[in-house]
């Protein structure tokens, strides 16, 4: 299994994507390796969602947290899903459930929050990268909506950075599988 993008590394990727100057110090805490942002003044921030939202505000790209109330809620929901389910689960069974959930959700959506690109897409992309790399061609086709979304996000300017480009075959091979 490919190494997962986690914690500090992921936040550094996000930092670069947001065009922040960097220089933040990240650490990890506890058994589950919760990322921590150390700051010079006051207590540090704990947790992926908290730090990510902080960075987005710092970069003044609040639209990444959603514009309408519904979008904001959906972004929150998927960030929570990302932290609790994608980070939490590691068995084959968990992975299947995650992909199935996402596949259903993305059937009628281009981005996780509907029609706009948000933080949820970014962090879900980083969280799923190691899973997608290992999928077989057949699985990629089975979770077609996830594949389409993933391929879209990895081509979104600035998102992929040094992560490997996951290849999706243009012609479907298993046309009657779904």
């Amino acid at each position: 299994m490919a190494a997962a993008v986690r914690g500090a590394e992921e936040l550094e990727l996000l930092e670069r994507l947001l065009g922040l100057p960097g220089g933040n110090k990240y650490g990890v805490q506890g058994e589950r390796k919760v990322p921590v942002l150390q700051s010079n003044n006051g207590p540090g921030l704990r947790g992926l969602m908290t730090i990510a939202a902080h960075l987005v505000r710092q970069a003044r790209k609040e639209q990444l947290l959603g514009s309408t109330a519904e979008e904001k809620a959906v972004v929150q929901q998927w960030l929570e899903y990302r932290v609790t389910r994608v980070n939490g689960g590691s068995s084959k069974e968990d992975t299947r459930t995650i992909l199935k959930d996402l596949n259903m959700h993305l059937e009628d959506k281009v981005y996780l929050a509907g029609n706009i690109f948000t933080l949820a897409d970014i962090l879900m992309y980083y969280g799923l990268h190691h899973i997608m790399v290992d999928l077989t061609v057949q699985e990629k086709e089975k979770y077609l909506n996830v594949s389409r979304w993933f391929n879209h996000i990895q081509h979104y300017p600035g998102v992929r950075q040094h992560l490997s480009d996951v290849v999706f075959i243009k012609n479907r091979l298993y046309t009657n599988a779904h």
Binding site: L144, R148, W149, N151, H152, K170, R172
Partner: peptide, 10 residues
């Protein structure tokens, strides 16, 4: 459009 978000490109 099954595996594409847009008609052309991304």
């Amino acid at each position: 459009l099954a595996d594409k978000s847009y008609i052309e490109g991304y």
